[in-house]
């Protein structure tokens, strides 16, 4: 990050203030939407969507991610992938979800059958 001139920095400073304003507005939006009391799935989707926008702004502008080289992105992408895997655990272990994706109607097993029944 060396070598930026004072004018460059002033330009950056203007951006920082704009991002700050955006973050403040989005915070108000988050709370306002919450007061509407959407059904849970919708509320979660909206809240996470707005939070993601705020997070992206912080990462891109305050953390200077926009000006970094590709190598860092690959590492962060790797991290993001494993983060998704980690978040997938609760979905995967939710038995109801699993029961829905597996055969629901299982034919009754006949007493003399030697082949195992499929599914659960």
């Amino acid at each position: 990050m060396g070598g930026s001139s004072a004018a460059d920095i002033q330009h950056h400073v203007k951006i920082y203030y704009r991002v700050f304003a955006a973050l403040a507005v989005l915070t108000v939006v988050t709370v306002a939407v919450a007061r509407i009391h959407l059904p849970l799935a919708g509320a979660v989707a909206v809240a996470l969507f707005v939070a993601s926008i705020k997070g992206t702004l912080v990462a891109c502008y305050f953390m200077h991610l926009l000006t970094e080289k590709a190598m860092l992105f690959w590492i962060l992408a790797l991290c993001a992938l494993f983060f998704i895997v980690l978040m997938a655990i609760p979905v995967l272990t939710d038995h109801e979800v699993m029961r829905r994706t597996v055969n629901v109607a299982v034919p009754p097993m006949k007493i003399h059958e030697t082949t195992p029944a499929t599914g659960h």
Binding site: T30, V31, A34, L40, A43, V44, A47, L48, V50, A51, K54, G55, V58, A59, F62
Partner: peptide
Amino acid sequence: DLVWIFLFPVLYLL
């Protein structure tokens, strides 16, 4: 700050 941006809605608003 970023962690709090996610913590706040998840814990307080949902």
